[in-house]
Design a protein around this nucleic acid. Structure first.
Length: 518
RNA sequence: GGCGCAUUCGUCUAUCGGCUAGGACGAGAGAUUUUCAUUCUCUAAAGAGCAGUUCGAUUCUGCUAUGCGCUACCA
């Protein structure tokens, strides 16, 4: 077994959909593993049975599949260090809890949650530690017989870590350098609960990381304060020499206001905070996801990678392979990053534009079908080609309608509808009013005559017929012609559009416009 | 309250003691486009404050301020 092989893990709790911040943590773990030729483990930390949410685990797996983040082992991926679900590792934890108990590095405590609450009420800033454990109901204050009797009669208890006060504990963080705190401020953390026979995060985490031979722990900054506790646990088990290296990532902050990005922010501010759409099994609420919103996974990955890390130069558009190549934990920033979803939109725009036209057609085809349009992939690709750089969307931002270029395939429909459906003519439309005057109908009549003489309706053929007519008469038919075919001022070049629609449809629309607008 | 972490344009960030502080998003202006877009060009926009170290500090140190995180029988 290669002692030096890099092994990292992503270990979410199945308490709901995977948060975008969690996605980034997983991504960094993935990039780090690939970069160093190591392995990425997928572990499920379901030690809090009360918070378990059905479907969450599958959701998380599907999310990573969509994003292209691959695991080497773990839940649903197999491997030699299983089981990878903490709820299936009870016996393992029990063994290690006993080890700590036998070594007098942990103790059994019978205080009920109610008693602890009462203590907190009674004493300001109460903390269960070396200064208070002597006045609580635990195996340190009770005799062995009393403890055994209480357990025998089925009393619930927890196992607490016995922290020695007054020690300066140092954590060497790859991103932050030396971080130290005094052990006196730590409380005697609960390591194990008899109620569900499961450990808490801290114990399970240390035991699993050790047993799974994890070499680097890359996680969010919210874990930094408990890192010294984890160091103490590694020492207590005698695993200090194989303790993994730590890297605490900066947090993702709300786009506006204060605090870290939370699961609730997304739909409140109009952008997804989850990779995939999530249907809450209890409340029935639906939370939007990047996939369903029309984002490309490469765009999401690229965007997320740059939130808290950069390659050290100005390069922004990077494939997964490039990211792997360039990734460096020491280049991660230390401060929290505000989640700028507008930049995320820009990334999607970039990736969408890069895509082959045919890649758009499945999504576009779906939208067309929803609107009752039957078409062919070739025809759709042709429209995409013409519209690709003409995509706009109106985003309701703080009640101000802002026009911006966005690229979601779904934006195509309102802007490309006229390719498939004849427009409704609106005399009040600004563009129509400006470009459809009293004598326009007569001009269009003439144009129709010119066009009806053509048998070949290609761009070149139309040009050959219409350009001389334009030159001779000095007429400017373009905008009115556009009104006739599109209904307003948008769309591609007139000849392209006309060639796409074909002779019959073009002449029909010109006639309809004359009838409707006079 | 306690402990910890952080602090460069509105936002994401570059700079590892030499700066006329660079790039991107967003914003504004112009050019291009017979429409709407796209695209291109340009403009505005920053080192939290105060000390110290130094020939020289955005970069190092300290203090203050501010922000964030943790402070559960949750992770």
């Amino acid at each position: 077994m290669s002692k030096n092989k890099v092994r990292v893990r992503f270990a979410p709790s199945p308490t709901g959909p995977l948060h975008i911040g969690g996605v980034r943590t997983a991504l960094y773990n993935y990039l780090f593993a690939r970069k160093n030729g190591g392995e990425l483990v997928f572990r499920i930390e379901d030690t809090d049975s009360s918070r378990f949410v059905p479907g969450a685990e599958d959701y998380i797996i599907e999310s990573f599949k969509w994003l292209g983040i691959q695991f080497d082992e773990g839940v649903s991926f197999g491997g030699d260090h299983g089981p990878y679900r903490q709820s299936e590792r009870r016996d393992i934890y029990k063994k290690y809890v006993k080890q700590l108990l036998d070594a007098n590095k942990a103790y059994i405590a019978f205080d009920t949650p109610e008693e602890l609450d009462a203590k907190r009420q009674e004493i300001e800033n109460f903390q269960y530690d070396a200064s208070t454990r002597g006045m609580m109901r635990n195996s340190l204050t009770l005799s062995k017989e009393e403890v055994d009797a209480l357990i025998a009669e089925g009393k619930q208890y927890v196992v607490r870590f016995k922290i020695e006060p007054g020690r300066e504990i140092h954590v060497q963080d790859i991103i932050r350098g030396d971080v130290s705190i005094n052990s006196s401020i730590l409380d005697d953390k609960v390591l194990y609960k008899s109620a569900d026979e499961l450990p808490t995060y801290h114990l399970a985490n240390i035991v699993d990381d050790h047993l799974m031979e994890i070499t680097h722990v890359i996680r969010g900054e919210e874990w930094l304060p408990s890192a010294p506790l984890h160091v103490l646990l590694y020492e207590a088990f005698g695993w200090a020499d194989t303790m993994p290296r730590f890297a605490h990532l900066p947090l993702l902050l709300k786009p506006v206001g204060n605090g870290k990005l939370s699961k609730r922010d997304g739909d409140k501010l109009g952008f997804p905070v989850f990779p995939l759409e999530w249907h809450d099994p209890k409340s029935g609420d639906i939370s939007s996801g990047y996939r369903e919103k029309g984002y490309l996974p490469q765009a999401v990955v690229n965007f997320l990678a740059l939130l808290g890390w950069n390659p050290g130069n100005d390069q922004e558009i990077m494939t997964m392979d490039e990211l792997v190549n360039l990734f460096d934990l020491s280049k991660c920033s230390k401060s929290g990053a505000r989640f700028d979803y507008q930049k995320g939109i820009w990334f999607n725009h970039q990736y969408l534009l890069q895509q082959d036209n045919m890649a758009w057609t499945p999504a576009f085809d779906k939208i067309l079908k929803e609107n009752g349009i039957e078409s062919t992939p070739e025809r759709e690709a042709q429209v995409v080609e013409m519209m690709k750089t003409k995509v706009i969307e109106y985003v309701d931002n703080d009640n101000n309608k802002k026009k911006r270029n966005i690229s979601f395939v779904s934006d195509l429909w309102p802007l490309a509808k006229f390719f498939f459906v004849a427009p409704e003519y609106d005399k009040e439309d600004k563009f129509v009013r400006k470009n459809w005057k009293e004598d326009t109908a007569a001009d269009m009549q003439e144009l129709a005559v010119v066009l009806s003489g053509l048998t070949d309706f290609s761009v070149e053929s139309q040009k050959a017929a219409v350009d001389p007519w334009v030159e001779q008469t000095g007429k400017r038919p373009w905008n009115a012609w556009r009104v006739a075919l599109v209904g307003t001022g948008q769309g591609p070049d007139m000849y392209e559009l006309t060639a796409f629609l074909g002779k019959e449809e073009t002449l029909n629309r010109i006639q309809s416009a004359i009838n409707a607008l006079g």
